[in-house]
């Protein structure tokens, strides 16, 4: 990780950590808007992080963004900052001035994260992007009890074409990358919580983490956590090299691996925590419920695997390996 990236991620980590932890997640699940955290995120310039410097933004790469989203996930992603960053990038690339405030991404039938709280709606249809005032809102939530609202677009403020590098599925690809990255972070958190618990909880006269049966499960989980992180890193790097549209394969891979890892990670954590882990009082479920929800958002494992599999089948067995290596970054060193 480069220096700039580690400074950024540390800043974000501190900022969200200071803003309230589990108490904040509970407030969000109760329908409150994380006003203080949002103000801090905006003050750090994160809302415009993916907007090019020429357009008044910070001009971060997808790799930087994914690293920030991973940190966000470690804290349960308690604000729609990732969606706002993505929406800002799309607006700016189409030459539309990025408005202040949280932005809601609306594409297809997908619910809008924090829709009831957003200042503007960014509507994606194919390769057009449009900025709208929010219209009628039907509040809803996911299993993580995060706001996932149906938002009708209100009056249109601007509309433009996206550049080719975003392709006709920029919203889906961006959301898949966001969800993969926040899953990676949330899984890191769940693993740390679970290891800590295994070292604390005593049964049969010793910490349960001293039992090989528990150690073996947590080691397998650590493998999955590492896998998601690598898959997300590869996806973001591909997006930097080829644009979101050109990174569909890597982003799809990341979402497949993230979804599978979320399933195993949440199951393992609950197995090790046992009864205490399923109580309302405990912090674990704020992360595991989000993991279960995030699997479904930005395309499921099944959705992306089908796309990857169809391509592999149509290319034939002899091309499978050459196609994979042909995607390696070239001339980077």
């Amino acid at each position: 990780m480069n220096d700039l990236r580690s400074i950024l991620t540390e800043q974000v980590d501190r900022l969200i950590g200071d803003a309230g932890g589990i108490a904040l997640l509970r407030q969000i699940e109760a329908g409150e808007w994380p006003a203080e955290l949002w103000a801090g995120l905006e003050a750090q310039g994160l809302a415009l992080a993916l907007v090019p410097e020429a357009a008044g933004g910070v001009g971060l790469s997808w790799g930087d963004a994914a690293a920030i989203w991973q940190v966000l996930g470690r804290h349960g992603a308690p604000a729609p900052i990732a969606e706002t960053m993505l929406a800002g990038a799309l607006l700016a690339s189409a030459g539309i001035e990025v408005p202040e405030g949280p932005l809601g991404l609306a594409c297809g039938s997908a619910a809008v994260p924090y829709g009831r709280h957003v200042a503007r709606i960014v509507l994606l249809e194919g390769n057009t992007v449009a900025l709208h005032e929010p219209g009628e809102i039907r509040p809803a939530g996911n299993v993580g009890r995060e706001p996932r609202d149906a938002v009708m677009p209100g009056p249109r403020i601007a509309r433009a074409l996206l550049p080719n590098e975003f392709g006709p599925r920029a919203g889906l690809l961006g959301r898949a990358l966001i969800r993969s990255a926040v899953i990676a972070g949330a899984l890191e958190r769940v693993l740390a919580l679970t290891v800590d618990w295994a070292n604390t909880r005593k049964q049969f006269g010793r910490p349960i983490g001293k039992f090989q049966a528990v150690q073996q499960q947590l080691a397998a989980m650590a493998g999955e956590v590492a896998a998601v992180s690598v898959a997300v890193g590869q996806a973001a790097r591909a997006a930097d090299a080829h644009g979101l549209s050109g990174a569909a394969f890597e982003i799809g891979c990341a979402k497949v691996v993230a979804g599978e890892a979320a399933t195993l990670g949440a199951a393992t954590a609950h197995q090790v925590f046992a009864a205490i882990g399923i109580t309302e009082e405990h912090e674990l479920h704020h992360f595991t419920r989000r993991l279960w929800s995030w699997r479904e958002e930005g395309g499921t494992e099944r959705f992306w695997a089908a796309e990857i599999g169809r391509a592999a089948l149509s290319r034939g067995g002899a091309n499978l390996w050459p196609d994979l290596t042909a995607r390696d970054p070239q001339g980077s060193n």
């Binding site: 898959a231 891979c253 497949v256 992306w304 695997a305 089908a306 796309e307 599999g309 089948l313």
Partner: peptide
């Protein structure tokens, strides 16, 4: 079949 193949390819790439 494409779902199973896709899951394997995603794992392979990772």
């Amino acid at each position: 079949a494409e779902v199973t193949i896709g899951r394997m390819v995603a794992r392979l790439a990772t």
